[in-house]
């Protein structure tokens, strides 16, 4: 049976309206409700399902971030992960933490924990990078099965269905491997009350990137973060002739 490492990121909840900081260095996160990246939730669900199907022996959740990342890890534990590792990154270092750093951390932990499968969400909804799975696979020199919409254990490997333009692609991979979860892979469960209570007592280990020997000096500089342009207000025209005239005036027809 395999050991599964699943990466979870704490992001601004998708129901919250995101605001750009006045100095355009990023977005406002203070006092804003956060939750687990929805794609990572799908990744956790898949890992827990693997355990329920006895494909996996243990599920380890990992999150990189400030102290509050532990809340996200508790959510993963409540969903069914067995233990958690909090890689503490705070303050300015967290502001500049990039997919390459996270990939290095996940790669190192995969080796340390002797994981056979790494599952992460295909991207985080805050920076939309879509790089961590791919970089982790490259660093480990493992096969990668990205954008998975179905994962099955076949023989000593995985058969993964991927959503690609205009259809589905089915690939087979040996283990160990890195998988990234797409939207339709599963529907994440709500943690039940008994499991929420149990999660409070499950082991959670705290480490730092330094402990893991990972240099988190930024490689990319964020130049500016800006709001999308405000959509122009529409106008109501009295009849078709006026509409046609307006369209002509605007050079659309």
């Amino acid at each position: 049976m395999s050991r599964v490492l699943v990466g979870v990121k704490r992001v601004i909840d998708y129901a919250v309206k995101v605001r750009v900081k006045p100095d355009k260095t990023g977005v406002v996160t203070d006092g804003v409700k956060h939750s687990m990246n929805p794609f990572d939730e799908i990744a956790v669900e898949e890992a827990v399902k693997m355990k329920e199907k006895k494909i996996a022996s243990e599920v380890i959740a990992v999150s990189c971030g400030p102290a509050q990342a532990q809340e996200t890890l508790r959510t993963a534990l409540a969903m069914g992960a067995d233990r958690a590792i909090h890689v503490e990154v705070t303050g300015p270092a967290y502001d500049t933490l990039q997919p390459l750093h996270v990939a290095k951390i996940l790669a190192k932990l995969s080796k340390d924990e002797k994981a056979d499968i790494v599952i992460v969400g295909k991207q985080a909804i805050d920076d939309d990078s879509n790089q961590t799975a791919q970089m982790t696979a490259a660093l480990l020199d493992w096969p990668q099965a990205t954008f998975a919409s179905k994962v099955e254990k076949t023989g000593d490997g995985l058969t993964v269905t991927r959503e690609i333009d205009g259809g589905l692609e089915v690939i087979k991979t040996k283990l160990p491997a890195v998988v990234s979860a797409d939207l339709r892979l599963n529907e994440p469960r709500y943690a039940t009350l008994p499991n929420i209570m149990k999660a409070k007592k499950k082991p959670l280990k705290k480490v730092t990137p330094k402990d893991l020997g990972v240099d988190i000096a930024p490689r990319i500089k964020v130049v500016s973060v800006e709001d999308p342009p405000v959509r122009q207000a529409g106008a109501v025209v009295p009849d078709v002739d006026a509409l046609v005239a307006k369209l002509k005036e605007g050079g659309h027809i």
Partner: peptide
């Protein structure tokens, strides 16, 4: 509250959320 009412059996099962999307 939850711990006590699960103990008494008034709450058989359930879930709690504080994330806006889940609460919605």
């Amino acid at each position: 509250f939850l711990a006590s009412e699960m103990e008494t059996g008034l709450i058989v099962d359930g879930t709690v959320a504080s994330e806006p999307a889940k609460m919605q």
